[in-house]
């Protein structure tokens, strides 16, 4: 049974508790690694399906422009 230093109520409390636990439990780093690697894999798969291989850059730039991530230089 895990003994908590305090009962978390807010998101910030959970962040604090996790950071405290991270100092003691190295296994949490492995969980974090899994989370990050899965996120990257999912993103790669999503955009590769959306834009294809042949015109990836062209389609990606169009997508980014429409969302305001690529802005004209003198906007």
């Amino acid at each position: 049974m895990v003994k908590l230093k305090f009962i978390p109520k807010t998101d910030l409390d959970y962040v604090e508790l996790y950071a405290e636990e991270l100092k003691q439990k190295k296994d949490l780093f492995n969980q974090q690694r899994q989370f990050i690697n899965n996120q990257i894999k999912a993103s790669q798969s999503l955009f590769s399906n959306m834009f294809g291989k042949k015109n990836f850059k062209k389609n990606a730039r169009q997508f980014l422009k429409e969302r305001g991530i690529i802005k004209p230089l003198y906007s």
Partner: peptide
């Protein structure tokens, strides 16, 4: 003009 630019790996959008 000190405007940000971004780079990703070929064939990928993120990271």
């Amino acid at each position: 003009e000190m405007q940000n630019i971004r780079f990703a790996k070929e064939g990928q959008m993120f990271p």
